[in-house]
Design a protein around this nucleic acid. Sequence first.
DNA 1: CGAATCGTTGATTCAACTCAACGCGAGTGG
DNA 2: CCACTCGCGTTGAGTTGAATCAACGATTCG
Lengths: 243, 243
Amino acid sequence: MAARVFAIRSLAGHLKARYSLDRDDLDGIERLNGTARSFEPNQYLLREGDRPKYCSFLVDGFVYRHKIVADGGRQIVSIHIPGDIIDLQNMLLQEADHNIQALTAATVLLFPHEEVVALAFARPAVGKAMWRETLIEASISREWIANVGRRDARERTAHLICELAMRRESAGLGPREAYELPMTQEQLGDALGLTAVHVNRTLKALQDDGLITRSKRSVAVNDWERLRAVADFTTNYLHLGQG
Amino acid sequence: MAARVFAIRSLAGHLKARYSLDRDDLDGIERLNGTARSFEPNQYLLREGDRPKYCSFLVDGFVYRHKIVADGGRQIVSIHIPGDIIDLQNMLLQEADHNIQALTAATVLLFPHEEVVALAFARPAVGKAMWRETLIEASISREWIANVGRRDARERTAHLICELAMRRESAGLGPREAYELPMTQEQLGDALGLTAVHVNRTLKALQDDGLITRSKRSVAVNDWERLRAVADFTTNYLHLGQG
DNA sequence: CGAATCGTTGATTCAACTCAACGCGAGTGG
DNA sequence: CCACTCGCGTTGAGTTGAATCAACGATTCG
């Protein structure tokens, strides 16, 4: 029943909001052969070992990428929100090194790799924008390494809540004070390197301390500044400024 | 006294070995205004918050990148060996989100960002090569998230040893069976999300099991296949194939 | 209504941390 | 040349944060 966040209209529209692109740049993007595709919750967009031919622009819904380790454990390595270009990471590589899976029902626009690469080099402003997007994603990965490697469960969980809040707000998807977070505690654990049980206790502790309110699949941040402080969260690694 | 691995000659030479570049591509690279610079062990190449103007090609020595968290803890987010282009990650971003520090004495070639970007779009083959290098680094970051998030100390430590062995071998720096690893146990801990004490015990256990031999600042892999299995290590995420 | 999935809670265990001490080799300076 | 320091590695004892195991509620859905 939860209201769906409004769909991001187009790749061109989204890039335009963050980068200075001229008419020809935008035309080039709009001329790409994008095909819409929908995925059910938990459906795979891509599996490790696949050789992807498309990169996808997430229009609606949540998607995440993950790796499986030897004992069957799973680590979520990124979470994507509408407006993210999901698969630039695989564009110049042959074989996917991770899985991409829909968290909720999701709609994406698929663009053929060759076309995207051709455009990137025909229109350098577009190329720089896309390259920059991949670098920001890499920066977020580095922050996740630090998060999982050097912060305890409380800090770590708070950090993820802050990050998603900020990224959503910055993408124009709504205020950071309250948002839909349609992840199970199991999935949160897989993102945070914790067990579902411990996520449960950690969320409860954050709630008892008045920092957040969690109901069903949404989070309300009751005290942003204190949560930020607990999380050791800063926005610098998100590189929100104009590219 | 340990023998220094031979220096990588040039950026052009290094890229040529991995990508098909034509004469003009290579000329373009060689015409870049690279200036050599040396760093002492522990010296900073870049600090979080800096606005870097150069990207650097690591000619000789080891370099690592790290982040500091609230309690002063440090997380190393990547380790670089000769042949790596260290700072492509910051090229299109304004402000560095992490620190870069020399592990050993190191020599780098500095190239101005604008020149590198200009070349990337003037010579798409070069641009693709560089972009791809950044994507591979991002892939390694994802593996590190999984390593720190979902593997125990033994697997984690073994994994790092395998990764560095493989990357060195692939860069033509010597066989994976034995190599210099000039990191203190403190630094290894910061890379693995462990304490120095626990790294010590973990290395000892790996050694007692006959998997590795560690002396001073070098590692010998006594049984690659068993170490690989312990580490849950595969090479797929390194994308070693021809770009 | 029953089944399945997800969240909650308690009891117990264990991997990794902390604290502390000591060893050792490489400089360094008297 | 020896004594000293300093950084790093090693080892032991005790603590703790998170995992594990297990059971039970709550909600959704066919």
